[in-house]
């Protein structure tokens, strides 16, 4: 077992792909260490969260490109570069900033393949940080992946652990469509087994984290770990829970969920996005449409309330689904008759 953090796994994936393919480069704010590093000596900072540490030192300023704070120009340039044959990784430091650059993502990059009739691919990865949990407040803590997943042409990935973070990022970089790679800021220090080689975790393939018979819980991103933390509680109550991590939301592994619900007859989705038109509600709707006759209880989606992410620690804690709410929802569904 080779233990690495989620952050190290992400860096390693980029490092390996940049070594493999000279067309892969990274562009974003402060990714080398500020000012393009210039005459700087010593190890470069690699971004405010250290997510690009070591890349400038190995690949230099030609392929690790610091930019002004100009998300529209970054995303648009990355889109244009991808359309022209390069394979950019563009960093959107916090996913909340999509509001200032979404045109380049959803009207441009996501549509090139379709509106240009398959003349070219758009091999673009937008790495972006999502999620609440560390007190960043309303404009640095959101999880807008449901909005991304609503856009045809975009792929959306939500790794929940270091192993998947590396494998999914390698797959995303090799993919020929634009991918919104949603890194959860609360997970950056999470440790786990990360093999040394450049392995792929395929997009569109979910994973059964724990097998069980009484209820299917689909958890997204940070919610996977929070659900795993509830397992001993479930066991105390004699409830056999099956936990599924979809790993990517678009494409989404519908079959793994249908198969599980056919076995358990119950579905709970735990989703960090806001509840209205959330990705979780889409999963629940698909399950109702496709495997209705297997259901022994209504489907349930657990999300934060329909409000922005607050800064106060007690409010933020109340915002996120937690052990008590997950256990309560599970009790409700398993006792439903």
């Amino acid at each position: 077992m080779r233990v690495k953090t989620y952050r190290e796994a992400i860096i390693e994936a980029m490092m390996l792909e940049m070594r493999r393919d000279e067309k892969v480069f990274i562009i974003g704010e402060d990714i080398s260490g500020g000012r393009g590093c210039g005459d700087f000596e010593g190890e470069a900072a690699g971004g405010p969260m250290g997510l690009t540490q070591g890349l400038w030192d190995e690949f230099g300023a030609k392929r690790v490109i610091d930019t002004p704070i100009s998300e529209t120009a970054i995303m648009g340039a990355a889109a244009g570069a991808a359309l022209s044959g390069l394979r950019p990784i563009a960093e959107l430091m916090f996913s909340d900033f999509f509001g200032v650059c979404f045109d380049q993502i959803y009207n441009q990059a996501a549509k090139f393949r379709f509106m240009y009739g398959e003349q070219g691919a758009t091999p673009l990865v937008i790495r972006t940080m999502i999620g609440a949990g560390i007190g960043c407040g309303p404009q640095h803590s959101q999880s807008p992946y449901s909005i991304f997943a609503n856009i045809p042409g975009l792929k959306v990935v939500t790794p929940s652990n270091p192993y998947d973070a590396k494998g999914l990022l390698i797959s995303s970089i090799r993919d020929n469509d634009p991918v919104m790679f949603c890194e959860h800021k609360s997970l950056l220090g999470m440790e786990g087994n990360v093999p040394e080689d450049a392995y792929e975790v395929p997009l569109g393939k979910g994973k059964i984290i724990k097998e069980g018979n009484d209820i299917t819980i689909v958890a997204i991103g940070q919610m996977v770990g929070i659900t795993q933390d509830c397992v001993s509680k479930f066991e105390e109550k004699g409830i056999s829970v099956e936990i599924i991590d979809p790993r990517s939301l678009s494409p989404f592994d519908e079959e793994i969920v249908y198969d599980s619900v056919e076995k358990t007859g119950r579905l709970l989705v735990i989703d960090e996005s806001n509840p209205v038109c959330s990705f979780g509600s889409w999963i629940a709707s698909m399950v109702s449409d496709e495997v209705f006759s297997s259901l022994k209880a209504p489907t349930r989606v657990l999300t934060p309330p329909h409000c922005p992410v607050p800064a106060a620690p007690n409010l933020e804690a109340a915002y996120l689904p937690d052990l008590d709410r997950i256990v309560e929802a599970t009790d409700y569904l398993t006792n439903y008759s």
Partner: peptide
């Protein structure tokens, strides 16, 4: 010809992206 564009002004960054080939490759 990287595309006409129905979003006014949105084509400018795309041209800049193509220009990145000079720097990267």
């Amino acid at each position: 010809m990287l595309g006409a564009n129905a979003i006014v002004g949105a084509n400018a960054p795309i041209a800049v992206g193509a220009a990145l080939k000079q720097r990267v490759l």
